[in-house]
Structures are given as structure tokens and as C-alpha cells.
């Protein structure tokens, strides 16, 4: 009993530490200006949405929100198609250079984005895609592709080989097998990929800061920096902006949580 209490206590402490920053951010975003001098962990005595209004209109978040939604949604949708097709070829098809391609994807998994940020910037600039959503989307897809190819591959190998063979016997082409047999049974992997890529794209700062310097092209993560000066910061603005930025991701995760966990653990157990 005592050991259970200790475990419970440790878990409760970890849960508190994990949720405290989110709670403090939410409290701060809802506090009227006169309450902002109080410690961050005190809940607001009266609730106001003025910081949200300010951030949304004066802070340019309306525009940033649309930019972010556009980039993240395109990233997620295109990534599902590209990664699943690549993984399908890797798992179900035989072709020359397959091993070399697999090695390249593994290498891609190991290289951090910061290590290649300068050549990436130069490449994007040389093709004239700086300050375009397309430039960021290309960079996002290229950088995250190995992760999702790996994820889809892990899922596809758990699909019985006989299904693929039965479809071949039935006269299906590889694309028909992919579209009508393999993808419909890969919903957890599709949702996990879509959700993860959307979240990564949504939260990314580095690439957007570098590739989208123009005001009208900015995303939410870059927009948050507007509330941070060298000597001062608008803590209520940052908090409201953070909440605005977090809401879609939290909602998406809550909605697809069950599939997400299934996708992440696919192939882990028989």
C-alpha cells in the first residue's frame, strides 16, 4: 500500500509539472492587465478575452493563423501520399537500387535539420522560393520524409503478404493494390502521419523564421516573437498567442488520439 502511495505521489508530481506551464499560460492569457502583476500560477479573478482580441487583430494572428493552417494542412496531406507510396514500394515491390534508397532514408533520419540549414536555405533561395509557402512546404516534406516512410513501412510489414498477393491474383495493378487494399487497412498509420506532420509543421520555428521573413507570409510560431522585445516582453500577448496556437493541435490530438496510439505502436506486438 505504501509503495502504491509513493508511486501515485511521483506520478501526480510529474503530471503537475507537465501541466503547470500550460495552466499558467492559460491563466495569464485570461487575466485583466491589473492582475498580471500577480504570480502566474494564480487563476484569474475575473476573465477577459482582450489579449486574444489584441493578438488576433493588432498582432496579425489572423493572417498568421491562415498561413500556418495552409502550410500544415498541405504538409500533412502531401506527406501522407508521398510517404505511403514510397513505403509501399519499399515493402511490397522489388526494384533496382532499393537497398541504396533504404540506406539514404536511414541517413536522412540521422541528420539534424540544424546541420543542413545553410545549404537548405541556399537551395531554396536559388530556386526562388524564399518567402513562398511552397518553399517551406518542400523543405518540411524533404526533412520529415524519412521518418514517415519508416513509420508507414513498419505498418505495412504488419499487413499480411497474402492480401497483396490475393489482389495481384485478382488482377489489380500496384497502384490499385495501394489505393484499394493497402491504404484502407492503414487508417491508424495515415492518421498518425497526418497528425504528427501537422503538429511538427504547426510548431516549427526555425525554417519559417529563415524562409518566410516577409510580414504577410509569417506563421504563428514566428508571430509569437512579435511580443518579445530585447528588453521587454508582452507576457499576456505571448500567452494568448500560445493558447491560440495550441488549440487546433490539442483538438486534433484529442479527436484522433485512439488511432494515433494504434499507429505509433503498430508492429510493436504481434
Amino acid at each position: 500500500m505504501a509503495s502504491r502511495l509513493i508511486v501515485f505521489g511521483i506520478l501526480a508530481l510529474i503530471a503537475f509539472l507537465m501541466t503547470a506551464p500550460s495552466a499558467m499560460t492559460l491563466f495569464t492569457s485570461l487575466k485583466p492587465p491589473e492582475e498580471l502583476i500577480l504570480p502566474a500560477w494564480t487563476p484569474p479573478a475575473s476573465i477577459t478575452f482582450e489579449h486574444f482580441e489584441r493578438v488576433w487583430t493588432d498582432g496579425g494572428f489572423r493572417r498568421y493563423f491562415l498561413n500556418t493552417i495552409l502550410i500544415s494542412a498541405v504538409d500533412a496531406i502531401v506527406m501522407i501520399g508521398l510517404a505511403s507510396m514510397t513505403a509501399y514500394a519499399m515493402v511490397f515491390m522489388s526494384f533496382r537500387g532499393k537497398l541504396a534508397l533504404q540506406v539514404l532514408f536511414v541517413v536522412g533520419l540521422m541528420i539534424p535539420v540544424t546541420a543542413i540549414i545553410l545549404p537548405l536555405y541556399t537551395t531554396i533561395r536559388s530556386v526562388g522560393l524564399i518567402n513562398t509557402h511552397l518553399g517551406v512546404i518542400f523543405a518540411d516534406l524533404a526533412l520529415a520524409m524519412p521518418v514517415f516512410v519508416f513509420m508507414f513501412s513498419s505498418y505495412f510489414v504488419s499487413i499480411p503478404r497474402a492480401l497483396h498477393e490475393a489482389a495481384r491474383i485478382d488482377g489489380a495493378t500496384e497502384f490499385q493494390i495501394y489505393r484499394r487494399v493497402v491504404m484502407p487497412v492503414s487508417v491508424p498509420a495515415i492518421i498518425t502521419t497526418g497528425l504528427l506532420e501537422f503538429m511538427w509543421s504547426w510548431n516549427d520555428l526555425l525554417l519559417r523564421l529563415l524562409l518566410l521573413p516577409r510580414e504577410g507570409m509569417r506563421t504563428l510560431s514566428v508571430g509569437l516573437l512579435n511580443f518579445q522585445g530585447q528588453q521587454t516582453r508582452d507576457i499576456a500577448g505571448i500567452s494568448a498567442g500560445t493558447v491560440i496556437m495550441a488549440i487546433p493541435v490539442v483538438l486534433l490530438f484529442l479527436f484522433f488520439q485512439r488511432h494515433f496510439v494504434r499507429g505509433m505502436t503498430a508492429g510493436a506486438v504481434k
Binding site: A162, L163, A166, I169
Partner: peptide, 17 residues
């Protein structure tokens, strides 16, 4: 191809979609 051979196959695991 399997299709061109016009054969049908029943698998041990049934392999139903």
C-alpha cells in the same frame, strides 16, 4: 502476370480484404 494467366488462388490464410 497472374491476371494474364487467368488463374484463381485460394490462400491458406484466406486473404480476404
Amino acid at each position: 502476370s497472374p491476371k494474364q494467366r487467368n488463374i484463381a488462388m485460394v490462400f491458406q490464410s484466406y486473404a480476404l480484404y
